[in-house]
Amino acid sequence: MREMVKMVIILTALSTLSGGLLAALKSRTQERIDSQVLEFVKGPAIRTILNKVSNDPIADRFTIKKGDIKETFFVGKVDGKPSLLAFEASGTGFGGPVGMMVGINVDTGKIIGTEVTTHNETPGVGANVENDTAFVGQFAGLPVNSKETVTKDGGKITAMSGATITSRAVCAAVTRAGEIYEKMKPEIEEKLKSFSG
């Protein structure tokens, strides 16, 4: 009986110490890990969309929480003015969510560019969305608050051949981005003020 108690005590103590150590380390490194993930996962897409800006959009970011939506916005400055914004939205594709980084011009209210960030689509079919710049490029210049759909559904976006579901997911993601932008517009404008100058 004594041996049993000893075993329980030692395992419990060891697990507690281990858990405590890891929790402490996790909270210490969390911020750095987040910024690393942003840099290497979303970074390339952000830098492609906001390619002519004078600042570092990953450093100049802000997060807005409204209702149950939490969104991080990346600010791009042109001639010292924070007029470009990039943020992520997703639509449901064939293999799960398709994440799209959408860049918009705050002054004109138009989309300046879109890039796929994450997806789990079928290789060779929907996964082509990753490199299909002609398809993804169709959104540039469209107004941010309009609802985008593929031609099959009566919209003006030409779907990728053989990948209608993925194409719809991309349209849904861009539409969703527009909704998020409209919903958070007052907060965004408020936040952007602190980046000017």
């Binding site: 030692i10 395992l11 060891l14 150590l21 380390l25 490194t29 750095r32 890990i33 690393q36 993930v37």
Partner: peptide, 23 residues
């Protein structure tokens, strides 16, 4: 069981540090 807890702890430490510094 004790060894595994010890080893797993250090592996998680390595994993967190690698995520933070050599992503």
């Amino acid at each position: 069981a004790c060894y595994i807890i010890i080893i797993a702890t250090f592996v998680t430490v390595v994993q967190l540090l690698m995520q933070a510094y050599t992503y």
